[in-house]
Computed example of a mutant assay.
Amino acid sequence: MPPESDDTRIRLTGTGPREPREFDLRPDEATRAALAAEFDLSALRKLRFAGQLVPTGRRDWRLEATLGATVVQPCGVTLEPVTTRIDEEILRHFMADWSAPEVAEHEVSEDTDDEPLPAVLDLMAVIAEELSLAIPAFPRAEGVDEVEAEARPTGAEPIRDEDTKPFAGLRDALSRDN
């Protein structure tokens, strides 16, 4: 069983006091190196996660925090190192009576800050989740423009939008017949 509370794990359920809990985490070099490896970063130079957990209602909690990080990753075009500063405001609601919204498979809910209430909140897991969302997907070195690539046989004409519409030819044929 995990500990009741330490620097990174905080018990949210049970008989403990329901009072605001502040935290200020600055993971050590080994932890930053592990996160950098997990997210294919060249380096994770700085990392800070600071904020508070505030009780709301009878059993719910709200997490208000700031995630600050300096990440280094290769440019998506030149492979040169790109350094990015991340400063994100984090807001999450942990709900005791949370239930998954009923949505179709292809729909994604915009209201993503409500989550089920865990017995113990692992702040390192929250750091990892939020950092993974904040890391640039396609970093670019300064002065490097987006690359446009085409894959077609030599001498072939580019595919036009009209060519991808299955009934375009039928429509054209019908309009010529009329």
Rank of each mutant, 00 (worst) to 15 (best):
K165A: 05
M124V: 10
I90D: 08
F94Q: 04
P81G: 07
P158D: 07
E88Y: 01
L53W: 08
E148T: 15
D60E: 04
A137F: 15
A128F: 03
E157M: 07
P153K: 14
D113R: 07
G76I: 10
E102K: 14
A156K: 10
L131D: 03
F49Y: 14
D97Q: 10
I159H: 08
F167G: 00
V54P: 05
T154N: 13
L170Q: 02
E105D: 15
A34F: 04
L91M: 00
G155K: 11
E64R: 12
L121Y: 05
V147E: 09
L53H: 08
A151W: 12
E142V: 12
L121M: 04
V82Y: 04
L123F: 07
A134I: 05
E107K: 05
R48T: 15
F94M: 02
E148R: 13
D28T: 02
S99D: 12
R152P: 07
P136L: 06
D161T: 12
V120T: 14
R140A: 06
L170W: 03
L35H: 00
L35V: 01
A69P: 13
L170F: 07
E129S: 11
A65E: 09
D40Q: 15
D163N: 07
A43E: 15
L79S: 05
T56F: 11
E80Q: 13
A37Q: 15
E115F: 13
V126P: 06
D114G: 00
P55G: 08
R92C: 00
T31R: 12
T78G: 10
T66S: 14
V72T: 10
I90N: 05
E157I: 05
V108P: 00
L91W: 00
E162A: 14
G51C: 13
I159C: 01
P166H: 01
P153N: 12
D163S: 05
T31I: 02
T112R: 06
E110K: 01
D40C: 13
V71C: 08
H93F: 14
R59W: 06
D145R: 14
D97E: 15
E64A: 12
A151V: 15
L35M: 09
L67I: 10
A151E: 14
A37M: 04
L133E: 06
G143K: 07
Q73V: 00
V126N: 11
L41D: 01
G51T: 13
R32H: 02
A151N: 11
E110F: 02
A50F: 08
M124W: 09
A119F: 00
A43G: 10
V54S: 10
A50Q: 14
D60R: 01
L47N: 12
E64G: 09
D60Q: 03
T83W: 02
P139F: 01
A128Y: 08
A43R: 14
E105F: 10
T112F: 01
D113T: 10
H106P: 08
L47D: 14
R152E: 08
